[in-house]
Amino acid sequence: MNTPPRSLGDAELHAYVDGELDEVRYTEVEAWLTEHADDGAKVEAWKRQKAALHAHFDGVLDEPLPASLQNSVGRNRTGRSMPAWMRIAAAIVLFAAGAASGWGLKNWHGNGDLAAIRFVQRAMGAHVVYLPEVRHPVEVGADEEKHLVAWLSKRLGRAVRAPGLTGAGFHLVGGRLLPDAGLPAAQFMYEDGGGRRVMLYVRSGRLGKDTAFRFVNEGDVAAFYWIDGPMGYALTGKVPRPDLLGLARLVYDQLEK
């Protein structure tokens, strides 16, 4: 071809706007746009459309779920009248009895669940990020536990503490402060003799209704989490579920004292 093309196809310009091009082609289109104002204007208009769609409809994402939908996803409201500690205690028994699978499903409460799910997803994300850290696994080490706890309590605006898990073979490595959807959260890291790590993620700030002890796993990271009043807790780890459950009970018992 002797002459350069008079214009890029619109298909390619759309693909540019939608992130469908590989890096090389993306850079080429970008260069093309700086020299071709007509195409540039089209691309800008399409980008404005996308921005306008988000501006207009993203508010729906934060709306509470309507009651009818909440009912659809969780008809059984068993346990709502029980105080949190009773539900949690009951859940522990159920989990221990191996009856957990059905129970977790029956206890959906709509919105609160969504906030709780997002919370535990953030906790698991933080777990994955800090799990492989060798040199800087924590901000403040266990040798300064008193300072660590005072600092995190101050930042979270509530007394938090690092429960002792030595009885289960895990010692405190230390902790760090993390952002959790715009609020401060604390992460305590524990390690056992075999180098396995579990982390307790604590956040202060309402996440919706209290929830019972719940188990989730994504990939090979598992978590037990619960919401108790203004506090959210998630114990995360790549350890077998019974081990994690044992640790979660230890954590819960100490925090409730």
Partner: peptide, 11 residues
């Protein structure tokens, strides 16, 4: 997983 998708479906 279904519950987690509800906000997007509603949008």
């Amino acid at each position: 997983a279904v519950v987690a998708e509800l906000p997007r479906l509603r949008r």
